[in-house]
Design a protein around this nucleic acid. Sequence first.
DNA 1: TTGTCGTACTACGTCTGACGTAGTATAAAA
DNA 2: TTTTATACTACGTCAGACGTAGTACGACAA
Lengths: 120, 120
Amino acid sequence: MTNISSDVIRGYNDTMILYLLLNGPSYGYEISKQIKALSGEKYIIKETTLYSAFTRMEKNGYIESFQDASEIGKKRTYYRITDTGRTYYREKCDEWQLTKEVVEVFIHKKPDLPGTMTDA
Amino acid sequence: MTNISSDVIRGYNDTMILYLLLNGPSYGYEISKQIKALSGEKYIIKETTLYSAFTRMEKNGYIESFQDASEIGKKRTYYRITDTGRTYYREKCDEWQLTKEVVEVFIHKKPDLPGTMTDA
DNA sequence: TTGTCGTACTACGTCTGACGTAGTATAAAA
DNA sequence: TTTTATACTACGTCAGACGTAGTACGACAA
């Protein structure tokens, strides 16, 4: 079973989180569930990774935290994306296209044909 | 200008090097030039990154080093890919396909259409 | 002859993002 | 009342990338 290694996703966790915040403010637990669902259970972000991403991105000005006053139950920290964050997100999207192009030069596609690449 | 960040390529430097070694043994300087050329000058691997990748991969049994006896001028360390390395390479190719699928869920493609995504 | 350029490395230290482990705390459900 | 799900924080470790620096040899020019 092939798994996504953290080294690959590294640097794109922030992008995934920002993508979800484009649709409006959200908070940790919800975002982690959305990442899991949208990735088809293929990627599950670790809690520590997620929360440290929030801290980092707020420090960088990509997101802003706030408390929802009209909250009944548990207190949550919500985050909303800033304009700087939106710009950063778009840059990461461009970067991704470039990276993909480059990496794929060095990648053999899965054959989908029998008898290829088995040996020799 | 969009640049490829090291965090993205991280974990795929090894894969690129192995890809080049599939065609036969090679050495540091040549590989770095090939990466530059094949990527269309878009990615230039740092010397330290390259040589530490060699060390790591040899330790992991993905490559083997040797000296070319029939060498005239400068002594070089050549590397050849092992069977373990070939297997690892194929796994990384599979992983890449999976990663790409997942990441692209969270990526907006460049519109190529005017008037989209400018604001709200 | 001296100097510079290209080639071919090694050594060492730093940074960053991911993540393991652990602990806290509250609301809801059993 | 105890568990389960939610919602975090703290702290430390690890690995890969990379900055800086230095060594060394061959070729070629001035």
